[in-house]
């Protein structure tokens, strides 16, 4: 096959990923790495680097509006991002050092676990936090944002911040190792564990991801794993797809889209698992 077919196909696939990611409320990275590594001839090293850069670009693009609207909080994200960025560097180094089969196997298991997590996670609101824990209070991890849907200001605070720091260390490790971005894990950790309101958890997840993925992306870049022919069409494709996805959001049926994403993850995770076993 001619070389130019691959970047065009990559653009088409990432454009579709961009649409689906917005409709399903997940980052593009979690779909990009398993799908592209399953369908395209690029080695996993290049796919992971592109996955991180793609997730990073999406998160950085969305962050200013979320920060200005108060739906992302620097106060909440900063301590967690520091821990996550340290472990993401370690994850990236481990990921680049391990044999490809082992990484494929671990990637397959992780993707299947994410699909299970998405399938089981409900939309219930666990954001009632009566009082901050001492660490969260010391770091002033609290604030107020305006919820346009409710038509009022929402005061928020978080708890279980020590446990959360440990959880975000694990999330950073996985993000760096597999180039997945980490929105799939950030939101449940912020919302269900720490008790941040769901909207704030979603907004701050992108902010966290932009810091955590930056440190891992540098490791891949410095190792030479950034292939322009993979990175550029992917980023442009996902960004344009996300814009169309945002327009389609009003008409989409979220439950159906979520089921499609879970099915895609199951297929891609299963394929990665088989690759890991050398099938």
């Amino acid at each position: 096959m001619e070389w130019w077919v691959w970047p065009i196909a990559l653009f088409a696939v990432t454009f579709a990923i961009g649409i689906v990611a917005v409709l399903a409320g997940v980052g593009g990275g979690v779909l990009f790495v398993p799908i592209v590594s399953a369908l395209f001839p690029f080695h996993l090293d290049f796919v992971r680097a592109a996955g991180l850069l793609l997730a990073l670009t999406g998160a950085l693009s969305a962050a200013p509006a979320l920060l200005r609207g108060g739906l992302a909080s620097l106060r909440l994200a900063m301590p967690l991002a520091l821990v996550g960025s340290i472990t993401s560097v370690i994850g990236a180094l481990i990921g680049l050092a391990l044999p490809t089969d082992a990484v494929q196997l671990a990637l397959g298991i992780t993707i299947l676990a994410i699909a299970l997590l998405m399938w089981r996670s409900g939309a219930s609101d666990h954001s009632q936090v009566p009082a901050s824990d001492p660490l969260a209070a010391a770091l002033r991890m609290n604030g107020v944002y305006h919820d346009a849907a409710l038509g009022r200001d929402v005061e928020w605070r978080v708890h279980r911040s020590r446990t959360a720091l440990a959880v975000f260390a694990g999330i950073g490790l996985l993000a760096g190792m597999f180039g997945l971005g980490a929105g799939w894990a950030n939101v449940p950790a912020l919302h269900l564990l720490m008790g941040a309101p769901l909207k704030l958890a979603v907004g701050s997840s992108g902010l966290l991801l932009s810091v955590v993925d930056t440190s891992a992306a540098w490791i891949y870049l410095n190792r030479g794993a950034v292939l322009p022919i993979v990175v550029a069409p992917s980023i442009i494709g996902v960004m344009l797809g996300a814009k169309l996805g945002a327009r389609l959001l009003r008409r989409a049926r979220p439950v159906l889209v979520r089921r499609i994403v879970i099915a895609l993850l199951l297929l891609a995770g299963g394929r990665a698992l088989l690759k890991g076993f050398g099938v």
Binding site: F42, H43, D45, T100, R223, L227, I229
Partner: peptide, 13 residues
């Protein structure tokens, strides 16, 4: 590139 992109990054470099 197609001769190289299927290999690990160290091989590519």
């Amino acid at each position: 590139l197609p001769k190289l992109w299927a290999f690990p990054v160290d091989h590519y470099i």
